[in-house]
């Protein structure tokens, strides 16, 4: 099952099933999201690392993916939010709250998958806005970002 399908399936599960299996479902969402970042890294010729940041491989993979690609920080908060919602789902004593947290986590995981899939197709996604970089300058070999000679 693709990470996106996994997130969709979990988001659509009934409350009782979500609450009952909160711990394995939270883990499944984290692993599905890790696989999204692994695909990105492999697609860019890198070997996904096995390290962790703050106890989470997802954050380490994100940092690895964002190195040299600041626009990848467009999904930094999504990674952190996903972990937050999964943690809350795991520790909550309340059935409804556990289910709600997992559903939100699934929606965040879906966003992460959509963003990365979009960026695999269109590398410029997040480039102009989240990293404040120009889209065309580097394509044209203008390392400094300035069209030499145009201003003189």
């Amino acid at each position: 099952m693709s990470p996106l399908a996994r997130a969709d399936t979990i988001a659509a599960m009934p409350e009782a099933a979500l609450a009952e299996q909160a711990v394995p479902l939270a883990q499944a969402l984290l692993e599905a999201s890790e696989s999204v970042l692994e695909d990105w890294l492999r697609g860019h010729g890198q070997v996904p690392g096995s390290g962790e940041i703050e106890g989470f491989r997802l954050l380490a993979l994100h940092r690895q993916a964002a190195r040299g690609t600041p626009s990848f920080n467009a999904c930094r908060e999504s990674c952190r939010e996903l972990i937050f919602q999964c943690n809350m789902a795991r520790v909550s004593d309340d059935t409804a709250a556990r289910a709600r947290r997992l559903r939100l986590a699934a929606m965040v995981a879906r966003h992460l998958a959509l963003f990365v899939a979009g960026k695999l197709e269109n590398a410029g996604l997040g480039e102009f806005c989240c990293s404040a970089r120009d889209l065309r300058g580097r394509d044209e070999g203008l390392a400094s970002g300035t069209m030499e000679g145009k201003h003189g």
């Binding site: 979009g118 269109n122 996604l125």
Partner: peptide, 20 residues
């Protein structure tokens, strides 16, 4: 509580890649 308050909307690519 909205977990996607700063998430990407693909805005800069709204015309060039509308489906995303």
């Amino acid at each position: 509580e909205y977990p996607l308050k700063t998430a990407c909307c693909g805005g800069a690519h709204t015309l060039s890649d509308s489906d995303t």
